[in-house]
Amino acid sequence: MPLLLFIALAVVPPLASMAGQAHVTGLFARGMIFALAALGLDLLVGYGALVSFGHAAFVGLGAYTVAILGAHGIHDAAVVVPVAVVAAAAFAAATGAISLRTRGVYFIMITLAFGQMAFFTASSLAPYGGDDGLTVSTRTTLFGYAPLGRDVALYYVIFAVLACAYGLMRFLVASRFGRVFRAAKENPVRVAALGFDVYRFQLAAYMVSGVVGALAGVLLANATEFVSPAYMSWRRSGELIIMVLLGGMGSLHGAIIGALAFLLLEEWLAGVTEHWKIIFGPLLVVVVLFARGGLVGIGAALARRWWRG
């Protein structure tokens, strides 16, 4: 299933250009960027039961790294990416250290608080556009080359990053680290009794997730050539959670499917009627009520039925 998904994503640009629908490539590129962010979030939500409602802050952090460094004439990935990664890891370490003291809904709300703080900080950055945001004049380069200049090239870079992140996440949840982290979701007291420091494992996962979010942000700034505080708004964080759940949490490829489905559905319904939300809203309710486990859950149920004949 994940393999099929990646093959399908790999053939989008040639198919789109053959069909003369080049904008579809851009749509899928955006979808994959959000898929990347949702993938990172799925590690927390699906494998750790840590619902972060401030995840858009990391995406924004990555995007602003591109824009701010760009405003000072630094465009090279060799600088931009490490800076984004370190900034996201530091932000995650600081906010995670406080947030992870709380549980359940309190965790949701405290991560929201940090997300909002990041949002308002971004809107107060008057030299960098403040509320209005900032245009990214030059896409990120790699050691002086400009491989991201063409949209199709950017598409495949995003694709590669998403595939690598997926592989890394798979490896991570199956590793010893991942097993302890998942066990802590089921029964933190017992894991602690076995001698593991649950807090440290969760903090590490929170940082990994944040870094993946920031990478998505770097790509997003390159794809849209624009950053604004809206990238960090709580609505965006909410959408990321919905993508994870729509696809089916705790399966990784579910997050990717969820993000793509969310954006494609939005695009399609918005084309049908300007009041697309009036369809989209009830659709979410129906998915929750009748499809436990999200789209991946539906797929699995259909597959089972088909096998039985």
Partner: peptide, 26 residues
Amino acid sequence: LYDRDHLDQVIATFGIILFLNQGVKL
């Protein structure tokens, strides 16, 4: 939704927000 997971409740009620906000506009 009462005996569902918190996350299910969040999505479903978010769906209702979308619906009613747009409905009011309509």
